[in-house]
Design a binder for these strands. Sequence first.
DNA 1: CCGACGTCCTGCTAGC
DNA 2: TGCTAGCAGGACGTCG
Length: 291
Amino acid sequence: MPELPEVETIVRGIRPAIVGRRIDRVIYAAASMIRCDDANGSCEHDEAVGRITAVLAGRQVRQLDRVGKWMFFRLEGSLPSPDTLVIHLGMTGRLGVVPASRDLPPHCHLRLALDDGQEELRFADPRRFGELHFFDADRFRNAFESDRLGPDAIGLRRSRLAAALARTGRRLKVVLLDQRVIAGIGNIYADEILFAARLSPFRPADSLDAAELHRLHAAIGSVLRRAIRHQGTSIRDYVTSHGLPGEFQNQLSVYGRVNLPCRRCTQPIQLATTAVTGRSTYWCPTCQEGG
DNA sequence: CCGACGTCCTGCTAGC
DNA sequence: TGCTAGCAGGACGTCG
């Protein structure tokens, strides 16, 4: 589902509608989706719902950040450690600020009334792979981030990428998907990036020479930025925060193009399902070196 | 350290 | 037309 470009598109869409506004009240929060971390450790579900229901009401959203596929809603108050609401969209999550009068989507797990009650932030997720977290202090947010997230793929330094690749013999595709190494790349963009870099997904990460490393680093930036410009990739579930599909699915080089001619060399695109995490991997054996 | 595989869920679609 | 198996953009855990 949403990878970095889709989450970035949603963040850009929601930011003007939510930053600076007050959460009037928590209309609904699904117990099974919520976790929170505070000084007492991690609490889950029913207890978490009680906590966020009590704490979010009346708070202003000061900032909305993104790291990888995670969104961080920073709330004013309780300085010097603002509280943070964290949302991950999983595979099928949707997020938007909509008029409160609009019909509820199926599987809506979070509803926050904003300001005068005219609008709501809504999170819906049929498959429920998404996650909602709440932290009441920066140190919990920081611990969460350093536990699970590497540097964001946008703005990643080449030296940092080089160091991460040099220390493992895992296949390139697996490493690109590892959120602790680089945050934000998922199955679609891993394949697109490796095609753009002309590197086989099956290459060991520590086998790249300087030119190949340069190509990979450049491809990460260019593919993701291009996808953001096109509002992300809509294959089945993803829509922007305005409910519209993205456009990047029309620009894909390899993902979903099994047996179609490679746009570069016209040879058929290959699909591997079993190798590499059991997920589908699309690539061009002619253009991508070292399979 | 690494890869393979199972698990959490629901909904859509390809194929019989 | 109708049913069902298989598959899906993610992330985490376990096992060998």
